[in-house]
Write a protein that binds this DNA or RNA. Structure first.
Lengths: 99, 99
DNA sequence: AGTACTAACTTTGAAATTCAAAGTACTTTT
DNA sequence: AAAAGTACTTTGAATTTCAAAGTTAGTACT
């Protein structure tokens, strides 16, 4: 138990970041607006959590134009996938006695 | 997705509280010292998180003497079990696309 | 040309959370 | 009498989180 709880990653305790990572585990690239709508967030709040995940190098950014509008998309890096996966392993282990 | 993330309970985002609740889902009563050792916490830190769970009425306290020493134990209330279970449901749903 | 709009932020400042460290009260052991 | 155990409470500082407002840069309408 002592070990399990310490394996939980502080980067993922916030539910916004948990939501972002979940989206990015399932979808290779997700754009800003979609994330914002799916997670029901303001621009600022989403941007700040994205920034912290970027600083940890858990996600990467791609900027392009679609038609004439800018489109910013995000993807989980290999590091990010590993870290998130480890976090989920720890969660699972912590809770495996559920039933 | 929008709904799922909002179902996550703020009371359980902290890993200490997650650990406490996990212990109390599996064991009917767990004493202070055991919790402290299992979760590798200082007295103060454990006490403060216990207090917040108590204030939410998610756990209840029992004080007794065993031999001549005081023993304080904790148990998840029905409300607490329900809330935690709902939180886990939300987590599970959020992550079910994992594989 | 001017106004409004969209996308994606950044900044600001305040509130809430978290934590370590120290202090407390009472009891037991040595 | 001194040290240690049990279970806290208090304090204060650091960190985190958030909403709200402001910014930048290009697009579209009028």
């Amino acid at each position: 138990m002592k070990k399990i709880i310490n394996k939980l990653n502080k980067a993922f305790d916030n539910k916004v970041r948990l939501g972002i990572m979940s989206m990015l585990m399932v979808n290779e690239w997700v754009d800003f607006k979609t994330l914002k709508e799916m997670l029901d967030l303001t621009d600022g709040r989403l941007a700040s959590h994205i920034k912290s995940l970027e600083e940890n190098e858990f996600i990467e950014v791609r900027k392009e134009f679609v038609g004439r509008k800018p489109l910013t998309s995000y993807s989980a890096t290999k590091t990010g996938r590993k870290a998130f996966s480890d976090h989920l392993d720890a969660l699972e282990e912590l809770l495996k006695n559920r039933y």
